[in-house]
Nucleic acid binder design. Structure first.
Length: 569
RNA sequence: CGGUGAGUGGCGCAGCUUGGUAGCGCACCUGGUUUGGGUCCAGGGGGUCGUAGGUUCGAAUCCUAUCUCACCGACCA
């Protein structure tokens, strides 16, 4: 490709709207342009990268035995009613009507469509297992699109769906997909980590996310410093800190005027926050005979809402009780609540249970207890894991301590079980002639998000540094004053032709620009190698080749150039 | 949805307080100049000042409404 025939579209200045580095660089390097909130056009440079990512994903999926198909973006609303997600999915699902006033949706994912397809096409166990995938535009009407293409409304996703006669077969394919995903991220050259994850509204039990590690990530990942345990903080198991033991202190009521927070109470009573417990009141599940439930945490810990709303007593989604309701029911406002003599179900975090002689609210305004103990003073309560892990916690697998880092979710795999096959009656005849529902798995890769995540991990003050695997061009030819030097032009044109013939993605910067302009543009775009052809070195029959990442420069004989470049990899 | 801020040429911004010919830098076009790290000079094209209404002789500027966008939060395969 010659720049004179290309849409380079680089910019000197960063548009004010771009917050994170990948967004800024994608705009400056002429990769994408915003059309509206969460909607982006892909310019040639961006599309080249996107296509290379997609090609790697496609290749690894094919190698893993998945088969490519293509399903419609526009899907009938009926299918979503059938699966139950017409009501469950919420406003992120963009619903549209056709001219006959029939309901349709823009597909945010394709479980319904694929299950419907397989239900009609597969009727025997002999056709299983089956793993189909597509690489396609998805639409999710995000509440707040942000960070450019990192969280956009329209994006490209590879989504695969597998179908099985039993859980064992599902598990086997799940492991294959896990490996395929590792292969994908390794081939691209990303620092990533598979983590145990929450399966969310997709449903199912087993689930892993694949995260690219980057400070700008929206998720917190907890990982062991000595084992390969890693989990989303949403889900990471928080083990009890210490043994449950009976304290010896006497239960004493103390006045704590104006001390409404844990910090204020511990300051006033001159005790460690770790010696206090806090009481949070949430709404109970509709099926419960109670209206409210008390959740108790050690003073320095925070509530994990995902863990809490999975508890039988607790309403899902989690709703904090409002203070008027709490006052009406418990005769005490926030700030002085505690587990002793509390008239509603009590769920105590493991680590809160391990505190003895603790400080807690007395359920009387401006009063707290000191020297409280669970068995002696509270008696009836349940214990559960309801807190967020914090850095330094023991790893749940018993090996090492947890550290916490930020990650960008670029892949997510699930074992769905029969959630969709059951709702949509998708089954086959088994070997014994019995009709059985299928077990399903689903596997997603955010293709567009990988592009942004790669930039987050690979950039410097001059711009993007593409790994060779997904670079828009593998190499760029930068001639010095070609319009004045027939000699430079001759060498550049010949090299360009040779590289094209060799099947290498080469960009030839044939603009009549000053050298500095070309150097800056090509470094911004992040092309891994540049060949600088100038009179200066041609006197010795040499050209210079520069590595974008290391900055290393080498002088090469013109005659050896092609072989050298072919071997760069 | 709550909070904060912003809408003036493709991009970055000034002008608004105190109403009176719409400006600067980048980018773009022409000519010259320069040429191994974003040269310099001269000339030039392009803007219903987000939209609608109001006040006024006169509105980018004041008032009202509305739309859009960004950031923080809530939310989120």
């Amino acid at each position: 490709m010659r720049t004179s025939q290309y849409l380079l579209a680089t910019q000197k200045e960063t548009p004010a709207e771009a917050e994170i580095i990948s967004h800024q660089l994608m705009l400056r390097a002429g990769m994408v342009r915003k059309l509206a909130s969460g909607l982006y056009s892909w310019l040639p440079t961006g599309l080249r990268v996107l296509n290379k990512v997609a090609a790697i994903v496609r290749d690894e999926m094919n190698k893993a035995g998945a088969i490519e198909i293509s399903m419609p973006v526009v899907q009938p609303g009926d299918l979503w009613v059938e699966s139950g997600r017409w009501d469950d999915y919420g406003p992120e699902l963009l619903r549209i009507k056709d001219r006959h006033n029939r309901d349709f949706v823009l597909g945010p994912t394709h479980e319904e469509v694929v299950t419907n397809l397989v239900k009609n096409e597969v009727s025997s166990y002999k056709q299983l297992p089956l793993n189909v995938y597509q690489i396609q535009t998805k639409f999710r009407d995000e509440v707040r699109p942000r960070f450019g293409i990192m969280r956009s409304r329209e994006f490209i996703m590879k989504d695969a769906y597998s179908f099985h006669i039993d859980a064992q077969s599902l598990n086997k394919t799940y492991q294959q997909m896990h490996q395929a995903y590792c292969n994908i991220f390794e081939r691209i050259g990303l620092a990533y980590r598979p983590v145990i994850a929450d399966s969310g509204s997709i449903g199912g039990a087993v689930s892993h996310e694949f995260h690219v590690l980057a400070d700008s990530g929206e998720d917190d990942i907890a990982y062991s410093d000595t084992s390969d345990y890693a989990a989303n903080v949403e889900l990471a198991e928080a083990v009890a800190l210490g043994q449950v033991k009976q304290g010896s202190a006497q239960l004493t009521l103390v006045d704590t005027p104006d001390a409404k927070t844990i910090q204020a109470v511990s300051l006033l009573l001159d005790c460690d926050v770790k010696q206090t417990v806090k009481t949070l009141i949430v709404k109970a599940d509709e099926k419960s005979e109670h209206e409210l439930v008390a959740l108790i945490l050690r003073g320095d810990h925070s509530l994990n809402t995902i863990k809490a709303e999975k508890l039988a007593h607790v309403a899902s989604p989690l709703q904090m009780a409002d203070e008027t309701a709490v006052k009406a029911k418990l005769d005490c406002g926030f700030g002085s609540l505690g587990p002793i003599e509390l008239k509603i179900p009590i769920i105590v975090d493991r680590s809160a249970e391990a505190v003895s002689d603790f400080v807690c609210g007395a359920n009387k305004e401006s009063q707290h207890f000191i020297g409280a103990n669970w068995q002696r003073d509270v008696k009836t309560y349940e214990v559960a894991d309801i807190r967020d892990v914090v850095a330094g916690d023991p790893s749940p697998d018993g090996k090492g301590k947890l550290a916490i880092t930020k990650g960008i979710e670029v892949g997510h795999i699930f074992q769905l079980g029969d959630k969709y096959s059951k709702a949509m009656n998708c089954g086959v005849l088994t070997e014994s002639g019995k009709y059985d529902l299928l077990q399903m798995g689903c596997y997603g890769v955010g293709v567009t998000r990988i592009v942004a995540a790669t930039i987050e991990q690979n950039h410097d003050k001059y711009g993007i540094i593409w790994p060779q695997s997904i670079a828009p061009f593998n190499i760029v030819i930068i001639p010095m004053n070609m319009h004045k030097s027939p000699r430079v032009e001759e060498v550049a044109e010949k090299l360009y032709k040779d590289l094209c013939d060799a099947g290498i993605d080469v960009l030839f910067d044939d603009r009549k620009e000053r050298p500095g302009v070309m150097f800056n543009d090509m470094e911004l775009i992040g092309i891994p190698y540049s060949v600088v052809i100038g009179e200066r070195n041609l006197d010795n029959h040499q050209v210079e080749i520069k590595n974008r990442k290391s900055g290393d420069k080498a002088l090469l004989e013109v005659d050896n150039l092609l072989e050298y470049i072919k071997n760069l990899g």
